[in-house]
């Protein structure tokens, strides 16, 4: 186990632990903030896997934009304590079924990957710098990239329309 692997394991434990806290925390805003820790740790994992550009995109888009959006949504949909039905538990009644399903999915995927890729190693022969990713993106992947921009535009216009049509009534 070399130094990279030690750092990766530490980041993995951090990511998985804070993900668990994000999914079980009773405080809504705390859940979103624990997700920041998870996403940051995953960005660190990307750096260790020689994908530095993806790591920065992860920090910019996820930690920067998505989490802020989620915190805004949490604050906009805040329910008053007095008008609520008195149930403060943040998980549904079928959480044990959900926990079993989650464990089954994780163990199943983990066993599959161990069986399939047990002895493989990442050598890091091609570093994912901004230059090399940009090269690949704007030569081999131009058409999917352009289609994706259309999808993103449609989704955001749809989001605006959904938000506006609600406030008109």
């Amino acid at each position: 186990m070399n130094a990279t692997e030690v750092v990766f394991v530490v980041l993995s434990v951090l990511a998985a632990g804070s993900a668990l806290l994000a999914m079980t925390s009773r405080q809504l805003v705390h859940a979103a903030l624990w997700l920041v820790v998870t996403l940051g740790a995953v960005a660190g994992c990307f750096v260790l896997m020689t994908a530095e550009f993806i790591a920065w995109v992860q920090v910019l888009v996820y930690v920067g934009a998505v989490v802020v959006l989620v915190i805004f949504a949490l604050m906009l949909t805040r329910q008053g304590r007095e008008q609520g039905s008195g149930t403060t538990a943040e998980v549904t009644g079928n959480r044990w079924i959900a926990a079993v399903l989650g464990v089954v999915a994780a163990v199943g995927l983990g066993a599959t990957t161990i069986a399939g890729f047990g002895g493989e190693r990442i050598e890091g022969r091609r570093i994912g710098t901004a230059a090399s990713i940009g090269d690949a993106l704007f030569t081999d992947w131009v058409l999917p990239f352009e289609i994706l921009s259309g999808v993103l535009l449609a989704a955001l216009v749809g989001a605006i329309v959904l938000s506006r049509s609600g406030s008109d009534r």
Partner: peptide, 22 residues
Amino acid sequence: MSLLYPLLLSSALFGIGLYGVL
């Protein structure tokens, strides 16, 4: 670096996310 570390972390995160959704 062994390929298993990221794959196992990914499995764990997927399971936790599935639990959260459900």
